[in-house]
Design a protein around this nucleic acid. Sequence first.
DNA 1: TTAAAGTTTCAATAATTACTGAAACTTTAG
DNA 2: CTAAAGTTTCAGTAATTATTGAAACTTTAA
Lengths: 181, 181
Amino acid sequence: MILSPKIENFVLHCGEMGSRWGFNRTIGQMVGLLVIHEQPLTANEIAESLKISRGNVSMGIKELQSWQLVKVTHIPGDRKEYYAPSGSIWDLANRVFEERRKREIDPTLSLLRDQILDGPNSPEEEYAQKQIQAIHDLLETVTKWSAELQRLSPEQLQTLMKLGSSVGKVIDLKDKLLKKS
Amino acid sequence: MILSPKIENFVLHCGEMGSRWGFNRTIGQMVGLLVIHEQPLTANEIAESLKISRGNVSMGIKELQSWQLVKVTHIPGDRKEYYAPSGSIWDLANRVFEERRKREIDPTLSLLRDQILDGPNSPEEEYAQKQIQAIHDLLETVTKWSAELQRLSPEQLQTLMKLGSSVGKVIDLKDKLLKKS
DNA sequence: TTAAAGTTTCAATAATTACTGAAACTTTAG
DNA sequence: CTAAAGTTTCAGTAATTATTGAAACTTTAA
């Protein structure tokens, strides 16, 4: 399981980015490796390729499973478990995005809701309350949007993606139409 | 500079979330504090409120400035510097989003571009190449979209946001408009 | 039922990242 | 020019997070 320079490069880069994407270096490398390899890999192959301990791989896989990024497969007559990405690049990105939303937004949203219900407890808290409300609204919008994106069909997504630099135009057109009716 | 329980709660929470949002606990607390307080604060007030060292505040401010999240103001006849958020909640969120794009996406995009130019160096790299291309395309789309969002006017954004639970409608809308013209 | 193949767990330790506080630096009023 | 007010830097240390490797656990073929 020796990696070609190009692939090694890619895998190492995934490691460096790993921590920015929400996991650690090792796990970043694992994702990179699994994504770039057509065939599923065993835990031992992963450990060997990345030069890390077997235990570390085991913990990494557990973490990746909690993110729903890997699936386990078996080869008939072989007792080992083989690991592969749980879907297309798009699927994986979606999962990461979703998981991060849960970790980065949901807890805050929940706290802010409580704080809003509580209301301002003193004149100085008036301004605080307004800001809390603003953050809450922003986060709620983001949440709704991300849920919406998950729901779109691949074709709709395709269209939306291509829309790119002309979202603005579509919106303007919509406004005009509304005024007419 | 003693904080009311509610505000302290909010600030502490921002600290916990800080690391998830791309900075560390202290810096998260600083953002929270600045956002929730109507009046700009001095570095000493921040240190006192959060019970952290003066040096830490100084480093935190430097970091926040690199994210363009704070602005410095002065009070006539007072030599101290007063710090405040650099804009509305929406502005701040935008900046964080933008900065994270730079850190989380741009370096990868750049590497992948190089790797694509390099082409597959062996038959086994065929598949790798395809995957690299797929990741590249995904990241490029995200980048384009985020640039587009920055460019929209607040009103356009407002419209887009309210469209909310029905992005699908935007697509339908687009199709209808195209047919008419 | 057992031993071989495989996997997971976790205490110890390594690596990384954040924080303090004292010293050095900068600015300005007198 | 100088001293007071303010700010930044950074070496040392504390706190956190990641990794190893050996022991414990699980599964299955014979």
